[in-house]
Simulated assay, not measured.
Amino acid sequence: MKNLAIQVKGLQKSYKQHQVLKGVNFEVEQGSIFALLGSNGAGKTTAVKILTTLLKPDSGTIKVNGFDVTSNPDHVRQAISLTGQFAAVDEILTGRENLIMIAKLRYLKNPRQVAEDLLKRFGLTEAADRKASTYSGGMRRRLDIALSLVGTPQIVFLDEPTTGLDPEARLEVWKMVKELAAGGTTIFLTTQYLEEAEQLADRIAILHEGRIIANGTLAELKKLFPQAKVEYVEKQPSLEDIFLAIIGKKEAM
């Protein structure tokens, strides 16, 4: 039997007259990387806010780490962390001070040692005593993810974590995400970068106009795409080809 970190059934959410989520269903296995893909306005961030107890659903059953997000939000919060689209670091503080502050807020023993361990893990030891305002985009994002790991959460939500990063910094984040999953952490990732999902995710769901219209491994999604026509070289479809074909934005070749 599968051990599930997240279960979502019949999730609906509206803002006034606009229905954003129209009965969303999916599951995320423990220790896996799950990618939720979708265009701007598809409802990805709304789904993340509901899963992380920042927003209440209109209807549906949503369980995170075995707890209902509506009736047991405190238990959910103890098991998760959330890294949003923009780095939530205090730029006045140094990298070390940021980590110590969060460790103290989580009432952890020996917050200085917690900070040291995370600085080393994320390659920030040399920059530890510089103000975060002097960090590059990639360093700031690394610090942001390090902050989200204070207290060793079981499930990490990354909402478009590489938005605005250069290719080198993006690769750094990808490496960290893979390492986290290899250590048993469940990763829930939203992204607009299809290559990101292709590189990282164990399972991929495509959210379009408020519904999950495809869900599976990359290999399973490729089966939804028409067989490649053999002319001189057989071209395998990329995840971008599959995504655009599924949402009806591109005629299948």
Rank of each mutant, 00 (worst) to 15 (best):
K2D: 15
L4G: 03
V8K: 05
V8F: 06
K9F: 04
Q12F: 15
K22P: 07
E27S: 04
S32E: 04
S32I: 01
S39N: 08
A42S: 06
G43H: 01
T45I: 11
T52D: 13
T52A: 13
L54R: 02
L55A: 03
D58R: 03
D58L: 06
T61A: 11
V64M: 01
V64D: 00
N65S: 02
F67H: 14
T70L: 10
P73F: 00
H75L: 10
V76I: 08
S81E: 07
L82P: 07
F86M: 13
F86H: 15
E91Y: 08
N98Y: 14
N98K: 13
M101G: 07
I102Q: 09
L105V: 12
Y107G: 05
K109C: 08
E116G: 14
D129E: 14
K131Q: 14
S136M: 15
G138C: 09
R141C: 04
L143I: 09
L143S: 07
A146Y: 02
L149P: 07
L149D: 04
P153F: 08
Q154T: 06
I155C: 03
V156D: 04
D159V: 02
P161D: 02
T162V: 10
T162H: 06
T163V: 09
L165Q: 01
E172A: 10
M176Y: 11
L180W: 02
A181L: 09
A181W: 08
A182R: 13
G184D: 01
T185P: 06
F188D: 00
L189F: 04
T190E: 01
Q192P: 05
Q192M: 06
L194N: 03
L194G: 05
E195H: 10
Q199D: 03
L200A: 14
I204D: 08
I206V: 11
H208Y: 14
E209S: 10
R211I: 01
I212A: 01
N215V: 09
E220R: 00
L221G: 05
L221I: 06
L224I: 02
F225A: 08
F225E: 02
Q236Y: 13
P237H: 10
S238K: 06
L239S: 03
L239G: 01
G248M: 11
K249W: 13
K250M: 04
E251C: 10
